[in-house]
Design a protein around this nucleic acid. Structure first.
Length: 733
DNA sequence: AAAAAAC
């Protein structure tokens, strides 16, 4: 029905705040009813009091009895320590323990699981059929070869929940019917699952990455890892021989300033060209790397000397307000709620505290001592990178654990023992289920973007993890917008927390200029393009993934080089897009709210919100992508007539003082605000986008030899036909 | 309702 849908690309169904609130209430009530009427053993909430009692000094960690875990419905986590704090010595003896055969699980699994994790299919893990695929004949051993290039071929992928129906291609776990070898995922049918590191005693079977017995190939050969596999960055500390991306080796500001600039810069480029660099810390403009002086602010706060010195090497000698405020309490071991404006140095605030408190300790295999939970993979990478140099000067180990990245390095790292684990909730839960991560030794739990982690969508996974972490440890919750949304988390997991709020959770007026432009729907496209066509880096925010793809495409059509970033892209594409934006090859990033929080890119001078944010918190977080660490920036929000009221409310809540201004294309207002300029109208060739999006080419003679078979690249014939891969396959949710 | 978060 053309004409019905507004021409502005917005969806028609809009929920008022009241409606949303009502939906929440209804849902809450439903859950409550279920609990009340439920004769089954008490849930987490009901055990809250126990948890409280359990809180005691840090020597008192204990693992919760497994019976309790079972109630919460987790998949068979390592169950060996029944009642015993750390004595898992019975693990080796399979016979002495209840086995997780299907009957066993069938009896207790599905119901319980359903309760806490309704989105999971109860028998998911058991559904994997190691043998006896009827269609086995179709699959050939070398399928593996064409899988990799083809997977990254298109920037797009379908959400993992939907990937099962792809037809001949089966999900990751089920792809292993290629031969007689059983993959590690299928350990279930051995009767139990042991933590990963203990499988050695089964005999000849070695950990996944060492399984040369499959043939000559070692899929995760270390030698070429550094180049091809961006996410191994975190292993650097453990492989001193290969540390091409060590932060410390980056040319220092001094070196550049002293005129070896060009060569240094070239080396810099070379070092990083294949790596999604995540430049986390705003470099402070002044000060040479200096030795620690008397008046070093961090030293005064009680930060250990090795950390202070390491920071000083980067010229970081004066703590930001949020750091000054939270560090004393955090170092003292208290639970802290920290709120500081976007870009104000929260990562370092909790990072320094955690590392200082971890210093000197030793991690046991698979039992991280501290966990940082973050809402997006990119943010996880960034936090990991930011902490990297500090972790290493203390001789500690850290690792990034998140979806979309290969398992083996994560298994490895966990097995070696980690002091600080940076994770997204989904993958960490996964690893816990696999027994590769055991959280009963976690002394410090940190939630970055805590209010977001308390959102309805995240909450179940987050609480599932927090429930596994023993009471008595320290909890740090940080965000730029800490509001009442986190009450439940606070009440449930924090003890006597102290709140530090260094900035108003309102829009900065000193370094950030805000503009709300009232526009007509038919002008949206061209105004967007003119603003995006300015000099400098621009982040464009849209509401949906599809919208991101569409706006990016429209920009390219009008001659502005832009690419979309959203959770529908595969991880490789996400990395490449973000890396290109960071290194300047991509001037315009069109993103969903995946990039709204935490992500730091230098010199983003304009944030353009093509779709208004959902609420004032989103406004502040999106806006916070510019004007980082004291720099200046402009935030422009486009509002259609029907969005005017909403935007006024959001602006009010966010502390904006500006009035919406009515503009049309070409108006001086826009020009003055952002440096907008007309576009060339000459479309950017799709090839250019593809170069950016496609995985680096593999060496000749590998990979596609068997191609043309079942590999998705068989659609290679469509290359150049303008498809922004996979769009046609996806459906509007 | 969207987005994000495991494979």
């Amino acid at each position: 029905m053309p004409g019905q849908r507004p021409n502005d690309g917005t969806k028609k169904t809009r929920w008022s705040t009241a409606q949303k609130a009502e939906a929440r209430t209804v849902k809450k009530a439903r859950n409550a009813r279920r609990t009340d009427a439920d004769p089954r053993p008490p849930r987490r909430e009901d055990r809250r009091d126990d948890v409280r009692e359990d809180r005691r000094p840090r020597d008192g960690y204990r693992s919760r009895p497994d019976a309790e875990r079972g109630e919460r419905g987790h998949a068979p986590r390592a169950r060996a320590d029944e009642g015993r704090p750390f004595g898992r010595d019975d693990r080796g003896a399979r016979s002495g323990r209840p086995s997780f055969d299907r009957t066993d699980r069938g009896a207790r699994g599905p119901v319980d699981r359903d309760r806490d994790r309704p989105q999971r299919r109860p028998f998911e893990r058991d559904d994997r059929r190691p043998y006896g695929r009827d269609d086995r004949g179709e699959r050939r051993p070398y399928d593996r070869d064409d899988r990799r290039p083809s997977r990254d071929d298109r920037g797009e992928r379908r959400p993992y929940q939907q990937r099962d129906d792809r037809g001949e291609r089966r999900p990751y776990q089920q792809r292993d019917d290629r031969g007689e070898r059983r993959p590690y995922q299928q350990r279930d049918d051995r009767g139990e699952r042991r933590p990963y590191q203990q499988r050695d005693d089964r005999g000849e079977r070695r950990p996944y990455q060492q399984r040369d017995d499959r043939g000559e190939r070692r899929p995760y050969q270390r030698d070429d890892r550094g180049e091809r596999r961006p996410f191994d960055r975190d292993d650097r500390g453990d492989r001193p021989a290969r540390r091409p991306f060590e932060r410390d080796e980056r040319p220092t500001r001094d070196a550049r300033a002293e005129g070896e600039g060009r060569r240094s810069a070239e080396r810099h480029t070379r070092l990083f060209e294949n790596t999604p660099t995540t430049h986390t810390r705003p470099e402070r403009p002044e000060r040479h790397a200096a030795p620690v002086t008397e008046d070093n602010g961090f030293a005064k706060l009680g930060v250990p000397m090795p950390l202070v010195e390491r920071l000083a090497r980067d010229g970081i000698t004066e703590p930001f307000p949020i750091q000054t405020a939270t560090l004393p309490d955090a170092l003292a071991g208290r639970d802290v709620l920290g709120r500081g404006r976007t870009g104000s140095g929260k990562t370092l605030a909790f990072g320094l505290a955690a590392l200082a408190r971890l210093a000197g300790g030793t991690a046991r295999p698979n039992r991280p001592r501290a966990v940082v939970l973050v809402p997006t993979r990119e943010l996880a990478m960034q936090v990991s990178d930011a902490l990297q140099p500090l972790v290493h000067v203390l001789g500690l180990r850290h690792k990034l654990v998140a979806g979309g990245m290969p398992y083996p390095p994560q298994f490895d790292a966990l097995e070696r023992g980690l002091d600080i684990l940076i994770a997204t909730p989904g993958r960490l839960n996964d690893l816990v289920d696999r027994g590769a991560a055991i959280l009963d030794g976690v002394e410090i739990a940190i939630l970055d973007e805590a209010d977001h982690m308390a959102d309805m969508g995240f909450m179940p996974e987050v609480t599932a993890l927090l429930d596994l972490i023993p009471a008595g440890g320290q909890r740090l919750l940080f965000s730029a917008t800490l509001d009442n949304g986190i009450d439940e988390l606070v009440e449930r997991y924090l003890v006597d927390p102290v709140t530090h709020s260094t900035d108003e959770a309102r829009a900065s007026v000193t370094t950030m200029a805000h503009h709300v432009l009232l526009i007509e729907p038919q002008h949206k496209k061209v105004i967007t393009a003119e603003v995006a066509n300015r000099d400098g880096r621009t982040v464009v925010f849209v509401r949906t993934k599809l919208g991101a793809d569409r706006v990016a495409m429209q920009l390219r059509e009008q001659g502005v080089f832009a690419a979309a970033l959203h959770g529908g892209l595969n991880q490789g594409a996400r990395n490449r897009v973000l890396a290109a934006f960071k290194d300047g090859t991509l001037p315009v990033l069109v993103a969903t709210d995946v990039a709204a929080r935490g992500i730091h890119v230098d010199d983003v001078s304009v944030v353009l919100q093509v779709d208004p944010p959902a609420d004032h918190k989103d406004y502040l977080h999106r806006a916070g992508r510019t004007a980082r660490a004291g720099e200046e920036g402009t935030v422009v929000t486009l509002a259609l007539p029907h969005q005017k009221k909403m935007m006024e409310r959001i602006g009010r809540d966010a502390g904006l003082t500006v009035e919406p201004v009515r503009v049309r294309p070409g108006d001086d207002t826009i020009l003055a605000a952002t440096g907008a300029r007309p576009t060339s109208g000459e479309a950017i060739p799709e090839e250019r986008l593809r170069r950016l999006l496609d995985p680096p080419r593999r060496p000749v003679g590998r990979g596609r030899r068997f191609g043309g078979g079942s590999g998705p690249r068989r659609d290679g014939g469509h290359r150049g036909s303008g498809g922004y891969g996979g769009r046609d396959r996806r459906r509007d949710g």
